[in-house]
């Protein structure tokens, strides 16, 4: 991939538009980043993207910011992460600065509320599409351990409401034990 001006503009615009149009915070932006960089642009491989998200989730700070830093670094080093982080922080800075001036009007406006209610459905559809794709990819590997980890982690998170960082740490520790010590097979 050639690192010309066009590349950097595309990198900036990708993170900028995701941050500007995605309602629902980091957990919505991250799956969309995966869709953008893995499926649409083919700049990052699926497995690598999941690695980056795992690391971003275990680090402090907003997950969308952390993931954009890692994606930027992966694609173009420190300067790349500078580009993606500016892309991610600019939209909230602009939008909220404007809204904070007259937020009572914004909060009670019927049209804006209708727009946001409709967009919620769109966001849910996009997320559902991403989830179907990712779960399919794990099932397709036919790796029983991976499928088991996925099911247990889902139950832990949805039913028992266990903290995401704890789930990450436990599954990573299990992977280290199972693949490195028990099976002695580190290849993916």
């Amino acid at each position: 991939m050639e690192k010309n001006l066009k590349f950097y503009i595309k990198l900036f615009w990708s993170t900028f538009s995701l941050s500007a149009f995605t309602i629902g915070g980091g957990y919505v932006i991250v799956p969309l980043m995966r869709k953008k960089f893995v499926e649409e642009l083919n700049w990052i491989e699926e497995e690598e993207m999941l690695n980056l998200v795992a690391i971003s989730q275990s680090a402090p700070g907003p997950i969308a910011v952390n993931t954009s830093i890692m994606v930027g670094y992966r694609l173009a080093g420190v300067f790349g992460s500078f580009v993606t982080i500016v892309g991610t922080i600019l939209p909230p800075l602009i939008i909220i600065t404007v809204i904070a001036q007259f937020y009572t009007v914004f909060k009670e406006n019927k049209i804006i509320n209708a727009l946001l209610l409709g967009m919620r459905a769109g966001v849910a559809a996009v997320i559902l599409d991403v989830i179907i794709k990712m779960v399919n990819d794990i099932i397709k590997t036919k790796n029983k351990i991976s499928i088991l980890i996925m099911i247990i982690a889902l139950l832990a998170s949805v039913v028992f409401d266990i903290n995401a960082a704890l789930i990450i740490i436990v599954s990573g520790a299990f992977g280290a034990f199972y693949y490195n010590i028990y099976k002695k097979e580190g290849k993916v």
């Binding site: 497995e47 999941l50 690695n51 998200v53 795992a54 991976s146 996925m150 982690a153 280290a176 993916v188």
Partner: peptide, 15 residues
């Protein structure tokens, strides 16, 4: 690689 292989399915579930 072992750690990451354990992590990936869990990340899918968190998302």
């Amino acid at each position: 690689q072992g750690i990451l292989k354990g992590l990936r399915p869990a990340v899918v579930s968190l998302i």
